[in-house]
Amino acid sequence: MTNNGREFYQEFEVFSSKSNGEQVQHQFSLLAPNEEIALVMAQENFMRRQPVADIWVVKRSNVRKMTQEEKGSLQRLDNKEYRTTKGYGYLKKKWRHYEQNILDEKEILSWGGDDKK
């Protein structure tokens, strides 16, 4: 005899993206004997009513999660303005003095837009 079929219940984490170009997001977990079956279960179990453009299944045992203690390592001080634009806000006033505008996020990210202007 075999193991009673208990090993049939392998754990898989399911990820999916909503549409082409979108990042994948975690959905839920399911039980299946292998990744091929997990893949054909995934959409109908978790995304019956929403559009899906891609699905990933990952064996749970291949996911290295954090322990509760390790989650402590995710905390940090709120003193890192130098990493963000918040630390450089004074430039706005400076540039105004030279009759120029600050190159802020809104301005810079607009440069990638279409060139019609």
Binding site: M41, E44, N45
Partner: peptide, 11 residues
Amino acid sequence: PHIEEDVAFSS
């Protein structure tokens, strides 16, 4: 054979 398949088969 298992719950996950019940859901998939029904679709």
